[in-house]
Structure formats: C-alpha cells, structure tokens
Design a protein around this nucleic acid. Structure first.
Lengths: 217, 217
DNA sequence: ACTTAATTCGAACGATCGTTCGAATTGGTC
DNA sequence: GACCAATTCGAACGATCGTTCGAATTAAGT
C-alpha cells in the first residue's frame, strides 16, 4: 500500500508481508503513536506538550524527533492510520452484502466497534479534526470525504431500493453525529458493548429514515 | 431597580432586566466575551492566546485582566452564559405544552435554533467541554446535567404516554449527538435554516423512537 | 476646576513551548 | 575487538505563553 511511513532521516524499507514483524524502527514508531494517542486524547492536541509525550512514551524529548519531524506530523500519522484502517475494515465487511438495510447496519456496527475498541484514537480523530493545517489537513480530509461518500452511497442505495424520500445529507450527518458523539459519554462500566449500542442506534436511525410517510396522530 | 455593579474587581451581580442598559463595565465585558467566543471558536481554547483575544477585541493584553482574572474564567463565563440561556429559553417554550411528542419537537427546535443563531458560542460549549477544571468544570457540568435531565424527562414522558420501550439513555445521547454534531458540518450557504433541519432531525429521531415494535404497516 | 474612582496600557516577569544539535550510546557485522 | 550506522539523550535555542504591576489615561461627581 502507499502509506508514507517514511522515516525522519533515513528512508525505511517498506513492509513486504502483512504479518511481518516490521523493522525495529516501525515497531518503535508504532509504540510512540500509541502513547501519543493516549496523551492527545487526555489533554487535547494543543494542550499536550512534547514533554508530555516524552514522559508518557518513556523516551527523551529529543529522541522523539528521530521518529517524526514535528508534533503536527505525529497527529497526522495517528489520524491517517486510524481513518485508513476503519475505511479498510468497512470495505472488507461490505463485500458481498447486497441488502441495503443490512449494509447500513454493517456500516454502523463497523464504526461503533472500531470506535469503542480504539476509543482514544477515534476521539483524537473526531475531536482534533481541525487541528491539522494545509497539506496534512487536506490529506486526512480526503479519506474523510471517501468515508462520507461511502455512507451517502449506502443511504442512496436504500432510497432507491424502497423509493424513499429524504435528505441524504442531513441523514448521513445525523448518523455520524449519533455515532461520533459517543466519545463524549461512553462509559464502559455503564454502557453496553458496541454490538448492542449499534443495534439500538441502527433501530432509531433506520426506522426514522424508513418511515418516510407522514404519520397520523 | 437595576443592580449596577459598581465595583470593578468584584462585579458578579446579574442583570435582571432584559432591555436594561446595564453598567458600562457589564457592557464592555459582554463585548469582550463576544470577541473571545469568536477566537475560541476559530482556534480552540488551548490554541487561542491571550494576545489573540487582545487583538480581536481591540483591547490591550493587560486591559483584559481588568474584566476577568484568568483565561479559564473567561471560557467559564462564555460557557455558563450560553448554557444558562439555552436552558432558560427551553423552559419558557415548554410551558403550557402538554403533548409529549410536541414537547420533544420543541426541544429539538430550541436547541438547533439557538445553535445556529449562536454557532460560535455553541461550538465553544460543545467542543471545549473538557477544557475547564475543578470548580469551573463542575459548575458548568451542573447546568449540563440539568439540561440532560430535562431531555430524559421529555423522552420518559413519551414512553409513558405511548407505552414505548427503549433505552432512554441511548436515545437521549443519540439525539444530542445528532444535534451537536452540526457544528462540524453546517454551512449556511448550503444547508437549510434551523426550522427545517429541526423538522428533518425530529422526523428521523421521533419515528425511530416511536416505532419500537416491529409491526409492518 | 478639582478630586476620586474607574479604566487602560506598556513593559516586563518566570514558565513553558516546539525544535535543534552535537555528543554519547547502542546494535549489528566483519 | 573494530567499525559503521542506527538510535538516544542532555542541554540549550528563540519564541511565545498567561499573568502582573505601576503608571498613565479617562470618566464621574462636586
């Protein structure tokens, strides 16, 4: 694949096999990314200092810069990897599924499962969406647009299949809102798992969108 | 009569009359709050510097501190005022309305109308919810909890009235997600006004919640 | 006009920010 | 062990951060 997991100073070898152990460099970078994700999640991108990241990852301040050239690029790497992964998993799950409603349910489940399994990364993705600038920003925005377009496609598929009539834009963005807002309230000690939350949200959203006839009172 | 806050450092008297001219101090502070809201909205709380606020409001850096004792208190004032206002307006609008569904529609409309009419303030309220600490945080959290409880009450009312069965918590938080997420996508040049967005979101949400039995028509 | 209080500001404080650099250390290969 | 490259670090850079202070300015009451 074309992910630019290039090094800071020395060009790295790309990873030939999926399950390969990767280079020492790549493994170390991945570790740092995990710790950085946690810090960005807890203190926010602007609120987190490089010294916070240094402390959390157990590496010296200067040592971090061997793996990335700036704090902004670090956030970029986190967001890009997270977004790419969730889109990739979605595509795999949608393959071979024809029913329009089922496809939307898969979309919701995939999103929420990944969200709750990678809460810190997804919060950083959702909450720091405006933190990147210029090239970094447009790069992530491209993936976001693709993800958005997929969801639009799913909903348009449902509309065509059942002859429904509603604003795809509002529906899609409402659905994203329902799902993404979860990072502000989800408590693993109180709330159910991703599967049942996805089921409940899927019920609300799909019934709401399917019943497009005016209801009588 | 009005309660003019004469002292500079210790103001804190609230202004009971809507159209009252208020003190010079209060008016000036309100102006600063408006400009600060804009800056916090654009650059985020952590990303906005006191010098940014100084530039935007046209007052010297030191001069700002005559009106508030810290940057954090400034954010607190913005959040408290915004939240208090939206709750206050909601209560007024709900008065005398008995129908459970209508009450929820009013809730949605009130939220979205205020959101779009005060987009910057509402974004600062939604997006910087974790920026305050200790006393400031718990103070705003109390209003938030009240607002949340009101919405829970409305939904429980609907459940009782129609003998429905769903998770109030998930439903309420899904609704908040749908509505609050709007700050990430709303474009006044593309999207409709608050009334029609509220109508569409209300349709999706209410149909989704009302049709809790899988009965085919 | 004089006095007092309210308001504003220039200049600076110490702290912390992201980043850099040269030296030190480590790991792998002969 | 010797060698080279990969990796790590202490120390510091200039910039900017939130905040303070005393003086200067403005408004209000007489």
């Amino acid at each position: 694949m074309g992910t630019p997991s290039t090094t800071a100073r020395i060009p790295a070898r790309r990873n030939p096999v999926i399950t390969a152990p990767a280079t020492r460099y790549d493994r170390r970078l991945a570790e740092i990314l995990v710790h950085a994700t946690e810090v960005f999640c807890k203190k926010g991108y602007e609120g987190a200092s490089m010294r916070d990241l240094s402390r959390e990852s157990g590496m010296s301040l200067a040592g971090l810069y061997y793996y990335f050239e700036s704090k902004e690029r670090l956030l970029y790497l986190i967001q890009k990897h997270t977004f790419t992964t969730i889109v990739q998993r979605l595509k795999a799950r949608l393959e071979g599924v024809g029913d329009a409603e089922e496809r939307i349910r898969i979309f919701i489940l995939n999103h929420l499962e990944y969200f709750l399994a990678n809460q810190a990364a997804m919060k950083v993705l959702s909450h720091e969406a405006e933190a990147l600038k210029n090239g970094f920003a447009s790069d992530v925005a491209a993936i976001k647009r693709e993800y958005y377009r997929i969801c639009v496609g799913l909903l348009d598929g449902l509309k065509n299949e059942r002859g429904l009539q509603f604003s795809t834009r509002i529906a899609v963005l409402s659905l994203f809102g329902m799902m993404n807002w979860i990072y502000t309230w989800h408590n693993p000690r109180v709330d159910a798992n991703a599967r049942s939350i996805a089921s409940e949200m899927g019920d609300i959203f799909l019934r709401g969108v399917l019943e497009n006839k005016r209801r009588e009172r």
